[in-house]
């Protein structure tokens, strides 16, 4: 039924490689990301999932020695156009990191609205609303609603991760990159984040890295399987998880290695 409507292309990489010095982190990846769909990136540790994800919002610009070749496009526009300020790209493409990264000295409240303040929002009422909405979305509201003024660094690891998610959601990005967002969360919070991904799907294009096969099959529409820096197989999630074309993909999702 999904096939009836032609999916709209949102992001695309063509022959994308990322080098750390001489060593490739990902090699020659060509991938189409569809609008308002969830795409899961799976593969064994060290296969380049994070590296690929970071190439999409130009995070590698910040890593000394990292070099990106090939093409990455958003809505047909070259993300690596030298005339394009990466700040603009990053305001469109939000990111949740593998490790929780709240600003430790900032209050919980200020953490959540940090991105909005950057673009000039000062209206207290609006910020209050966005703060509550984002914290509810990331399933943190009930735990912190009475201590929004305490520092973000005072939260537990899992709470910090949900705070990071709330912070990324507050700016309402068009594309959301999530690098193992639930790896430090308890089952209940994980459930809530997976529900959230389902709710966001109407508005946001999501790319999620996960080591959890069930999670990939539950939340995603498309799945890409990476292995040692290369994209091995990319297809609809149902296809990948029921009848993958590649033997390696099958071995991986059935837990025979990785």
């Amino acid at each position: 039924m999904d096939n009836v409507i032609e999916n709209k292309l949102r992001l695309e990489t063509i022959g994308l490689s990322v080098f750390y010095g001489e060593n490739p982190g990902v090699k020659d990846v060509s991938l189409k990301i569809y609008d308002k769909k969830v795409t899961a990136l799976i593969g064994p540790s060290g296969c380049g999932k994070t590296t690929f994800l970071r190439a999409l919002n130009r995070m590698h610009d910040l890593t000394r020695g990292a070099k990106v070749t090939g093409k990455a496009l958003i809505d047909g526009q070259d993300i690596y156009d030298p005339k394009l300020d990466p700040v603009i790209i990053r305001r469109k493409i939000g990111m949740v990191f593998q490790k929780p990264t709240p600003f430790p000295t900032m209050s919980i409240y200020d953490n959540v609205v940090a991105g909005l303040k950057l673009v000039g929002f000062r209206d207290r009422k609006l910020l209050d609303e966005v703060c509550e909405r984002s914290l509810r979305q990331s399933a943190l509201w009930d735990e912190v609603k009475d201590r929004l003024k305490t520092p973000g660094g005072s939260l537990s690891g899992g709470q910090q991760q949900r705070l990071s998610i709330a912070r990324a959601l507050a700016v309402e990005p068009e594309v959301l990159l999530m690098d193992e967002p639930t790896s430090s969360l308890d089952p209940q919070s994980t459930n809530r984040i997976e529900e959230l991904i389902g709710e966001l799907k109407d508005q946001v294009t999501i790319i999620i890295v996960t080591h959890n096969m069930q999670q990939a099959s539950r939340v995603s529409d498309y799945t890409a399987f990476f292995y040692i820096g290369s994209l091995i197989e990319y297809n609809k999630t149902t296809k990948i998880f029921t009848s993958p074309d590649q033997k390696r993909t099958e071995e991986y999702i059935t837990g025979q290695f990785g």
Binding site: V87, R90, G94, F97, M106
Partner: peptide, 19 residues
């Protein structure tokens, strides 16, 4: 990671330093 978190929110160089 702290710098990256600020950058990922769309902070400019100076905003990363400040934030």
């Amino acid at each position: 990671e702290q710098r990256e978190a600020a950058s990922a929110l769309g902070a400019t160089k100076w905003e990363v330093i400040r934030m």
